[in-house]
Design a protein around this nucleic acid. Structure first.
Lengths: 335, 335
DNA sequence: TTGTAGGCGTTATCAA
DNA sequence: TTGATAACGCCTACAA
């Protein structure tokens, strides 16, 4: 089997205690010669620490869990990468969990993570928690949540992306280009951030004294096909010169629809995406979109969670601004 | 602190051994009443097993590590999702590691994973291992490798994607449409699969008795901008009517370049991507591309790795076919 | 049917 | 400067 401290101790003719001290750099009181002996021997024998045993004593595992609906969604991929980088930078490892937006999977993973004695958990749930989520009570370690301010009682870190202002900026950008009839096609309206965005939309209009018209609001799925289909079915209301969408993929769908309709972007129609994901840089023209700092929010979730783990105990909420990335898909309103 | 078996035992007035038996369903010899008592009490007290302690005894952790260059690359994202699903289905958890193609990070994670006592490791390295990778010797658990048949001595599972045939099919498809001058723009040529694809390219040509012309081979980075830039700089060799690319992103770049040049796809130029990633479905027209079963390879890596962990000990290589997905970006050669 | 006891590999306290 | 020893929480012969 593998080499243990006991093996090293035996080989060196000393005690395990001393070996442990040296190998953990708590060797202030160990003589120079034993220290070197131990170090050399452990290297020779190919010693690898068994963190399970260590964790039994120290009560921490240097391990976090991250739960999200689906790593394949570019938005979550970014977050995940940010989280992993920050975790790794601090000597932590990450368990990856895809919940597919299913409450049962979420609960299952929560249990697994607790059993594995993770030091903390990052929860990214997109769907609105209508279930009371009592299971969260069982979570006895700090956990951080992105963008969800209703459910998850007891959470110690919230990272909140400013959806309201992001959307507002998008509308302001369009209005400043002369657009007055701005359509907003969103994805599922049950998502927690939906009302924030609608509020932002309204505020943006108000900033330019444009009256709000509920007929310029639409909703469908968060996909390219769905967005394309939406306008194929419903057409574009009279006078609309710009469309805001729920994410970049939907915007791509709108671009395709416009193309098929013979509408030129941005000359005839301006289109705005959301997320500033890689999908916004793939079309010609590239998408004007709202940057959400997804990578940064992953970093931040871990950063703040680690603070909690390492002693801080007042729950904390951190806000992240969104900002408009103006690119080729928006231009002056046609007259 | 948290509830342990000892707590349950004390509360029930019985021994830990009995509690353990019940909680692990090895309760053939436990009386009905104690069994129920234990189950009820453990539920009441909110008992959660401590897998660290369990693993100390059982010598397994039901945990795997997965290492890849970058989860943000859509190809790896798919693999990762496949791996996670299969792991979860079998009761295993997954540590996620992004190596950024850096040998130092790869080694670092390898060490970390060993310290965490994972039961197995999945290694997805895109870069050619020129370093001898001696550290792999230290890995004392089974590990599975994707698409790398030179380095990594001692690996117990290889999943090999048939790059040669994938590329061959792409060329055959184009040739059958009448194309005779087919350009192949690849990404970094140091990657292990590069020569397979070039071979496939040549075979495809040979299938149609088209002479091989080395001037129709080009290479740049695996990105959209790079591909676009390549043709901007070098133009298209005389008579070329079709372009194969190293991945879908590059194909998107070619599409954009063609658009700027006023070339219509597929009327004037046919374009083929690689990977069948989401990027192939985002443009109009959608990309003809080579499907690589990335999700499936993730599943397979885990599936086979688990077999090794659970006893099988003959190293194994599994092959995965690639197949052409004909979509809108290819059409009859212009005359 | 139930319980005792030893051990998994570390860490940490305290005595030598 | 070093070491003996007792945990940590669980599993499992084997004994009662």
């Amino acid at each position: 089997m593998s080499v243990t401290m006991k093996d090293i101790a035996r080989r060196c003719g000393i005690s395990v205690a001393t070996v442990s001290k040296v190998l953990n750099d708590k060797d202030a009181d160990v003589s120079e010669v034993t220290r070197e002996l131990v170090k050399r021997t452990s290297k020779e024998m190919g010693y690898v620490v068994n963190t399970l045993a260590r964790s039994m004593k120290t009560k921490n595992t240097k391990t976090l869990g991250i739960m999200m609906p689906d790593i394949k969604n570019a938005f979550y991929t970014d977050i995940c990468r940010g989280a992993e980088d920050m975790a790794m930078k601090n000597g932590y490892s990450l368990f990856l969990c895809n919940t597919d937006d299913k409450i049962e999977k979420e609960i299952h993973y929560l249990e697994k993570l607790m059993e594995k004695q993770v030091d903390g958990i990052i929860i990214i749930a997109s769907m609105e928690r209508n279930t009371k989520m009592e299971e969260i009570q069982k979570v006895s370690v700090p956990f951080a949540v992105l963008n969800n301010n209703t459910h998850y009682p007891g959470c110690s870190v919230r990272v909140v992306v400013d959806n309201e202002n992001g959307m507002r900026e998008a509308v302001n950008h369009l209005a400043s280009l002369g657009h007055r009839r701005i359509f907003y096609l969103t994805g599922r309206t049950v998502l927690p951030f939906h009302k924030d965005r609608v509020n932002g939309y309204k505020e943006g209009l108000a900033d330019w004294s444009i009256p709000y018209d509920e007929h310029l609001l639409g909703s469908t799925e968060f996909s390219m096909e769905a967005a394309k289909c939406f306008f194929k079915l419903h057409g574009l209301p009279q006078g609309v010169t710009a469309i805001c969408t729920g994410n970049d993929l939907m915007a791509q769908g709108v671009l395709q629809w416009a193309h098929e309709e013979g509408l030129k972007v941005p000359e005839d129609l301006s289109v705005v995406g959301y997320d500033d994901s890689i999908f916004s840089r793939i079309s010609a023209p590239k998408l004007t979109t709202v940057h959400q700092q997804s990578y940064r929010s992953g970093e931040l979730l871990v950063e703040e969670l680690l603070k909690q783990i390492e002693g801080e105990n007042r729950p904390k909420t951190v806000y992240l601004t969104s900002s408009l990335m103006a690119r080729g898909s928006t231009g002056p309103a046609p007259r």
